[in-house]
Write a protein that binds this DNA or RNA. Structure first.
Lengths: 162, 162
DNA sequence: TTTAATTACGACTAATTTGGTCGTAGTTAA
DNA sequence: TTAACTACGACCAAATTAGTCGTAATTAAA
């Protein structure tokens, strides 16, 4: 029921990576996957979700890729969560029968978890992606020549420093 | 990876129920299960966890049951989470291999998800169970924990924060 | 015009987590 | 002794998550 999973992790990793690029410069999924060891297909789908949500722009074809189109410092984590894992809904009502509440007004069941849900949404709305990406640079350990070639081809060092 | 699940729900339901009792009055799992439709065995185990964590006291035997021993208004949700679902750890390091970090001591990879984890822990530490158990309407004055309140009840954990 | 590199996306399987049950034992009031 | 409780480990089922595969579609460049 929670929404913090690998998809979100791949999204944040990708966003952090793209943030270090020049405006207009594209990032491929292959590049992200190779640099950080994320599974290609899974990462690819996450990027597609981000593109569908308007957070990144995609260019197809050879020399295609993704680029950021929004300022991460003004982007609530909540929006990314919506894009990659859907609405933040931590728990369903225990007593729902065919979509309706069985206990009606006397229900004290859903309330605590619903309260928590609301507070979590508040929390996610108030937390910017930019904040999460702070800290030391995300330095990947070069694992192969091919990797360095990739980075070189992109015109960047592997170490993305703040 | 998230820790918001049915166990937590049963815990909050039980706590809310017990809070309405007189001091010294016991609540049985049977009572909770019957009142709210929670599965008996699952709820029972949750209560046992709460007892192990010192949040409630249990009395065995006929006419036994559970009772609250702590003030829910000064109890961080974090503690309940620890009791019923273990430490708040939303995501494992992507680079872990066989339970150990692949990069060992030289690992300077800080996953954004780890940052999020820290922020979530902060959030859970500052949110009291009492707040969550308020009615369905708005809570006029949220009783967020101050640091000194935390110190009174969870001083040993505060030391581990930094 | 062909090829290679890339995004797009649905279907599928495997792995993990979660939710729940069962059996049995220990405790205590009546 | 019995009935009503808590205590707890082992187990199974369901749901979710994670990852893979196959196949298009798109585009730059040879």
């Amino acid at each position: 029921m929670n929404k913090i999973n690998r998809k979100l992790e791949y999204a944040l990793i990708g966003l952090k990576h793209m943030r270090s690029k020049q405006p207009g410069e594209l990032t491929t999924v292959k590049e992200i996957a190779a640099t950080y060891g994320c599974p290609f297909e899974a990462t690819s789908k996450v990027m597609q979700s981000l593109a569908a949500g308007g957070l990144v722009r995609s260019e197809q074809g050879a020399h295609g890729g993704y680029q950021l189109v929004r300022d991460l410092n003004r982007l609530p984590l909540y929006e990314v969560l919506e894009m990659v894992v859907g609405p933040v809904e931590i728990a369903k009502c225990l007593h729902q029968v065919d979509g309706g509440c069985e206990l009606r007004g006397s229900c004290n069941v859903i309330s605590p978890i619903e309260n928590l849900n609301r507070k979590l949404i508040e929390f996610y709305r108030g937390l910017t992606v930019g904040e999460l990406l702070e800290g030391r640079g995300f330095v990947a350990k070069p694992q192969s020549l091919e990797l360095r070639d990739l980075a070189a081809h992109a015109g960047h060092e592997l170490a993305a420093v703040e």
